[in-house]
Amino acid sequence: MTAVAEPAARAAPRLSALSAVRLLPALLLLPCLLWISFFFLLPLALMCWRSLASDGFAFETYSVVFTSPLYTKVMWTTVKTASIATLGALILAYPIAYVLTVGGAKLRALILIFVLIPYWVDIIVRSFSWLILLGDNGLINKILMASGLIGSPLHLLYNPVSVLLAMVQILLPLTTVTLFGAMLRIDRTLIAAAKIHGASGWQAFRTVFFPLSLPGVYGAGLLVFVLALGFYVTPALLGSPRETMVAQTIMVEASQLLDWPQASAAGAVLLVITTSLAWIYNRYFSLDRLWGGSNT
């Protein structure tokens, strides 16, 4: 009898210790989980519900998103603008991130300051600053007029270029920092190995550093693209109606037309697009290596 009871008694504390170990992460996550549930997941669910339950229960709102000329055009503009802005940010950020990676400590600190200060300035402020630069009475036009190169001001604002200029500028810090993080994780002795085995600096970059930095480029690209898809203030301030992006349309539907089901449906579609992009990336490159997770 006792012989049977003893192992059971001994097993009991070990079991509770084990479950405590299992419980601890759950306990630590709980506050955040509650917060997210109430203020993110619940509204999200309500939004999805609303998108379906306009008149009875229908997918009509979704068919509008996919078929109406307005939405098709806005969606296309959104994807096009976000793609170009992402590409531009990547091209500009890559050399900066590279210098950050290979440069000395002092240079790195200096560049990081210049990268991060704009990052800390609000998006609205940064968008407005482009009005000051590009406006008919803006800095650029004033300089050009004063120098006599042009007689009347150029209309630099409210076109795709002004929107893209500002978007790239706004996305640049995040792109740079993300790329820098990814590049830091490239083993630099690989470059030394390439050099000692006959590669010039450029060849070592082209054959070793650049290919190894590509997953980081894709990751930063995805992150920035998802962010760019949701831009609202910048196209609203610097673009014409032709540059309208989907976030603006959703805003108009919700606050001016009060068509909440339609706005919800468009929001849900946007959400599905971004989540699937993240999913595809994670499938092939694994997201956590952007934040310093496992290698290869």
């Binding site: 083993d187 002795t189 690989l190 030394a192 190995a193 390439a194 050099k195 000692i196 085995h197 006959g198 590669a199 010039s200 060849q203 070592a204 054959t207 070793v208």
Partner: peptide, 15 residues
């Protein structure tokens, strides 16, 4: 890269 030396690194440093 012009020294024509071969090298084996501590961590191998294979590409």
């Amino acid at each position: 890269h012009k020294r024509n030396i071969g090298m084996v690194f501590q961590s191998y440093s294979l590409f």
